[in-house]
């Protein structure tokens, strides 16, 4: 009888606390950052022209380097926000930064680079956005970390601040190089 009373009072309490815990956790989640199914898979194939010299570039350029592939566009405001960080970290030679210029006007893109700085080794141009679909891009800026074998190891969605670099991306890159 006593046990029954304990359950009758305790069980709803437990359920209530469980739901509160679940909702509490929900507050700290970021639903806009959708996990990428491409993590630990080879980078998708692409064949895109270089913004500055029109030479064709492919996913084979990723082999042999740790790469930070940054998807940006001159119309993207958050991209301008992260550019100073990218320029600063491009001094580090343990990895290369490749740009993917997403659905952009080429003249605007070149002007934008002059204004905000060019941290990129090379920049591939995806004017249709089809290649970006292969990368699962849904909002610029997005940044992928790719290892020396061309396998995607990490994806960061949103602008990279110095804090994000130190706390999140740098440890990932250092582990790979």
């Amino acid at each position: 009888m006593r046990l029954f009373k304990l359950i009758r009072v305790g069980l709803p309490m437990m359920i209530f606390l469980g739901v509160m815990l679940l909702l509490w956790r929900g507050l700290t989640l970021h639903p806009a950052q959708i996990p990428s199914p491409l993590i630990n898979k080879p980078a998708p194939q692409y064949r895109l022209p270089n913004l500055l010299n029109k030479k064709m570039m492919t996913e084979r350029d990723l082999i042999g380097h740790v790469t930070l592939l940054n998807v940006w566009a001159s119309w993207c405001e958050a991209c301008a926000e992260e550019q100073s960080t990218l320029v600063a970290i491009s001094q580090n030679k343990n990895f290369q930064i490749i740009g993917l210029d997403y659905k952009d006007n080429l003249a605007d893109a070149k002007k934008w680079l002059q204004q905000y700085g060019n941290p990129y080794e090379v920049i591939a141009v995806d004017q249709t956005g089809n290649s970006a679909i292969d990368w699962g891009v849904y909002g610029t800026p997005e940044t992928f970390v790719i290892d020396k074998k061309g396998i995607i190891r990490y994806k960061y969605i949103g602008p990279i601040s110095m804090e994000v670099w130190e706390d999140t991306l740098r440890p990932v890159i250092e582990k790979l190089s």
Binding site: I34, P35, S36, P37, L38, I133, D134, W135, G136, Y138
Partner: peptide, 8 residues
């Protein structure tokens, strides 16, 4: 689409 964007 799921291969690229996940079950989401």
């Amino acid at each position: 689409l799921v291969d690229r964007y996940g079950n989401f």
